[in-house]
Design a binder for these strands. Structure first.
Lengths: 119, 119
DNA sequence: AAGTAATACATCGTAATGCGATGTATTACT
DNA sequence: AGTAATACATCGCATTACGATGTATTACTT
């Protein structure tokens, strides 16, 4: 079964698809921080939100490690919120450091925009 | 010696710097194909050109493997050109497949632009 | 004459990261 | 009883930028 999916990936290996992945890899952290800044988010909510507002389709195995990473890097802080029923949610918000970094990132993007517009 | 540089990288590990790398990772192939389409290029020339026209600083250990990869993927073709003196140059140009892919990539970027502008 | 820098090719190993597969638990719908 | 949605999480693979390193030629500098 594993092997089947492995073969499938080899066969479907497409330059554009691969490139697209790399591109998202770069832009995703920006979108994530931006959305969290607007409003405190929990992981699952963020996945839905990314798809809705940025047409960015990501899976849980992308988002959860990323949120953990950003927390470890001091950009995010989290708190558990018990629900009346169901699984508790882990809400993430920006730390002051996170807000500062987001601002820096937007400046970098701004500069890249300029270069890109020439092409 | 190796270990020293390894430590150095750990210490200087910065979220923004790392993110910037990922971002370039996504945009670089686009710039490379774009520049080669305008005019046939050899590796060393391309490095200089990227810095001059796109403020994109890359090293040889990024560009040479990338050109090899793109050739293997059928996007580029190469030919050796002997110089009157010095080391021969390997010139790269777009294959028809490469031109088609570049067009697709520009469309993807266009779409991402739209999403980005909202932020 | 010797040393450095620029030009020109290339490869190795490490770090980083998206994503598919997989697992667990709860609730709601069919 | 079975499927789907909600909500968390980890493992392992594939991809790729980049520092370090190597080789060869030519030009400039001390």
């Amino acid at each position: 079964m594993y092997y089947f999916f492995y073969l499938l990936r080899i066969v479907k290996s497409d330059f554009i698809k691969n490139w697209d992945t790399q591109l998202r890899k770069g832009l995703l952290p920006l979108f994530v921080l931006h959305i969290i800044q607007r409003k405190e988010q929990y992981g699952y909510e963020l996945i839905v939100e990314l798809k809705a507002t940025a047409s960015f389709e990501v899976t849980e195995s992308t988002i959860y490690p990323m949120l953990t990473r950003m927390t470890k890097d001091g950009l995010l802080q989290s708190r558990w919120v018990e629900q009346g029923s169901g699984i508790p949610r882990k809400y993430y918000s920006l730390t002051p450091e996170g807000k500062k970094k987001l601002k820096e990132m937007k400046q970098v993007i701004q500069r890249l925009f300029t270069n890109l517009s020439e092409l």
